[in-house]
């Protein structure tokens, strides 16, 4: 596992909670932009799969943002190198450092031992070209999800501070068509993927869910896995990739309640840190008190939102 943030094994249970607490709610001016690219399928079967996956991703993006103004989508015949360059150049011009960018590549990839290429209609785009274009986008936080075969060739090339890379394979040598895209798309609408049940799917939650599902699919077939997804970067736990419920603007009252809710969450986190030193009964009693308060605040938020 090429993980730069110290999570070599799938994270389950409690560990997720601490990450979820670190989610940064974008400020009023910080915007999230999506670029979704469906590469060439080569066969009708893959054309169909890639088309469906890109469209599903676009729907999730629209639901997450509340509109399609910051969702760019190209796929099929339109997905040429020129079109992709144009989209990224446009993003480079229209975003600022306070914004975030999520790029999803769905399709086939190839690797010749030296260079990775994402397969597009017409000439393919190489790893160098792609990363240069993405780097040119000034958005402060970036996420690149590459679901293609051989996508692991990008490992070690790009991710770092504020840049998260997710690939379907662990190297350029894993060249079979991948299953990652299918489960990634599923993760973005899955209650199960939302392990902390806050209605938001982070890049990390989506990755962990997808990774587990891909491995499970090979296991249940009794076949050797031909892909091993990877994640690199230092902020996958705070990068929102989907919302399970439509986003609504907050009234001042709701905002106050949210502040209260956040304060309670903070207290819960602090309590958890003391778990070892407290007896189980005292811990659970204290936890119950905070959780009940939080549940009541949450109920008020939901009621307020329902009358909006």
């Amino acid at each position: 596992m090429a993980s730069t943030f110290g999570m070599g094994t799938p994270m389950r249970g409690l560990a997720i909670v601490f990450l979820s607490a670190a989610i940064v709610v974008p400020t009023a001016h910080a915007e999230l932009y999506y670029l979704i690219v469906g590469g060439i399928g080569g066969e009708s079967r893959y054309e169909k799969i890639f088309s469906e996956q890109t469209q599903s991703l676009a729907q999730v993006a629209e639901q997450t943002l509340g509109d399609d103004l910051r969702v760019s989508l190209i796929y099929g015949e339109e997905a040429t190198k020129t079109a992709l360059k144009s989209k990224l150049q446009h993003l480079a011009e229209s975003t600022s450092a306070s914004d975030s960018l999520a790029v999803f590549l769905v399709g086939h990839g190839s690797y010749d031992g030296e260079q990775y290429k994402f397969n597009l209609t017409g000439p393919d785009i190489s790893d160098d070209e792609l990363l240069e274009l993405v780097n040119a986008v000034p958005a402060g936080e970036k996420l690149l999800v590459n679901t293609s075969s051989a996508s692991g060739a990008l490992i070690g090339q790009w991710a770092g501070e504020d840049r998260t890379l997710i690939t379907a394979t662990r190297s350029g040598g894993e060249r079979n068509a991948t299953r990652f895209g299918e489960y990634w798309v599923a993760s973005l609408t899955s209650e199960e993927a939302d392990v902390n049940k806050n209605g938001i799917i982070t890049a990390e939650e989506a990755f962990r869910y997808t990774e587990a599902r891909v491995a499970g699919s090979f296991e249940s077939e009794g076949t050797l896995a031909t892909e091993h997804a990877q994640i690199e970067g230092d902020a996958p736990g705070r990068f929102i990739v989907a919302r399970l419920r439509p986003r609504k603007s907050d009234t001042p009252k709701i905002q106050l309640l949210r502040d209260e809710s956040q304060e309670l969450e903070k207290q819960i986190d602090e309590l958890r840190m003391k778990r070892e030193e407290m007896g189980t009964d005292s811990y659970l009693n204290a936890l119950q008190e905070l959780l009940l308060e939080l549940a009541l605040v949450q109920r008020q938020i939901d009621e307020e939102q329902s009358v909006q």
Partner: peptide, 14 residues
């Protein structure tokens, strides 16, 4: 404890 905003669990707890 894992998912403080888990609506169904909150309701049952209440």
């Amino acid at each position: 404890e894992i998912a403080p905003h888990y609506r169904d669990a909150q309701q049952l707890l209440l």
